Computed example of a mutant assay.
Amino acid sequence: MMNAQTVRATLEKDPREVASMFDGVARRYDITNTVLSFGQDRAWRKATRRALRLQPGEVVLDLAAGTGVSTVELAKSGATVVAADFSQGMLQAGRWRKVPMVAGDALHLPFADSVFDAVTISFGLRNVADIDAALAELRRVTKPGGRLVVCEFSAPVVPVLRTGYMEYLMKALPAVARSVSSNPDAYVYLAESIRAWPDQGELAVKIANAGWSGVQWRNLTGGIVALHRATC
């Protein structure tokens, strides 16, 4: 049997491979992300919360929530936020956080239609096997007029930044991951999946094609990350 600590998913994104890979990085996932992003992950979480414009009393889905660190940030708004992830290892690693957690697949969410005032997914849409189906499933569980925010790696808009970023992804990031991650091979997949990901405009088209309206995006950190916002 393959040891979960050595699992590296392929870009084919077999759900079992991806879940096993995230199980393998769960123990040091949050600290690894902070190191690899030079602390920018905290600012990205705050920007996602603000983009959702959450109100006390609203019910929100935080999909691909991992250990729930993003869910805790969203809950600062006073909304009720449910963390969902398909990696049992991630949920287990974040079990001490005071947020509701549910095991769930982005392609088959365990929720009824039109139950959330807002839905969000941060750095997780890139890992699903069918992006279009996941966006449609998120729309299914959102109330009419509800909001979507996708926070995801994207394409730097300044050429010199883009060149340096790609060099970092393919050379420095795996090296840094070896010193801090519980599964460094997973971060080779991370780098490759970012390179293969649609740019800001292409993702906006996918979101609109899934039935969302008023799609807009805003670049963070020069386009290394983009926030896409839309309405159900």
Rank of each mutant, 00 (worst) to 15 (best):
F86L: 03
E73K: 11
W96M: 10
A196N: 10
G124K: 11
L125K: 00
K171Y: 10
V81R: 12
G164L: 13
F153Y: 14
R53K: 00
S77W: 10
Y189N: 12
A75C: 11
L61I: 02
D62C: 11
G78F: 15
P110R: 10
K98C: 09
E58H: 01
T142Y: 09
F123I: 03
L63C: 06
M170I: 05
T142V: 03
L190K: 05
A65C: 13
L190S: 02
T67F: 12
T142E: 01
V176K: 00
W197L: 07
E58F: 10
V149G: 06
F86M: 09
Y187W: 12
A155D: 02
E137C: 04
R126E: 05
V81H: 06
M170C: 15
L52N: 01
A133Y: 07
A103S: 06
E58R: 00
R178C: 12
G89W: 10
T67R: 03
N183H: 14
G66A: 02
L161H: 14
T120D: 04
A136G: 14
F86N: 04
A196Y: 04
P174S: 09
E73T: 11
E137K: 07
R162P: 03
R178Y: 06
A75Y: 05
M101V: 03
G146M: 05
V59K: 01
D113N: 12
S70D: 14
G104S: 01
I194W: 07
A129C: 04
A136V: 11
E58C: 03
R195L: 15
A83V: 04
L61R: 08
M90W: 07
D105P: 12
H108L: 11
P159R: 07
S114F: 00
M166Y: 15
P198V: 10
I194P: 05
P144K: 14
D132L: 13
P184Y: 11
D62Y: 08
G164Q: 10
V60L: 15
Y165L: 06
Q92L: 12
L169H: 06
V72D: 02
F111V: 00
G68N: 12
L107K: 15
P174D: 01
V102D: 10
L161P: 00
A134Y: 07
P156G: 08
Q92W: 03
L173F: 11
L125S: 13
V99N: 12
A79D: 05
R126G: 07
W197V: 05
V60R: 09
P56R: 13
L169W: 01
L135I: 10
T142S: 07
R126V: 11
P198M: 07
S181Y: 02
Y168I: 00
D132Y: 00
T163C: 12
V69R: 13
L135A: 09
L190M: 13
D113K: 09
G89L: 01
V149Y: 04
Y168D: 08
P159K: 08
F111R: 02
A186C: 15
P159W: 13
F116I: 06
F111Y: 12
G68W: 05
A106C: 15
S193P: 03
M101Y: 01
D85K: 06
C151W: 08
I131V: 15
R162D: 14
L138S: 05
V115G: 02
A118V: 01
L161N: 07
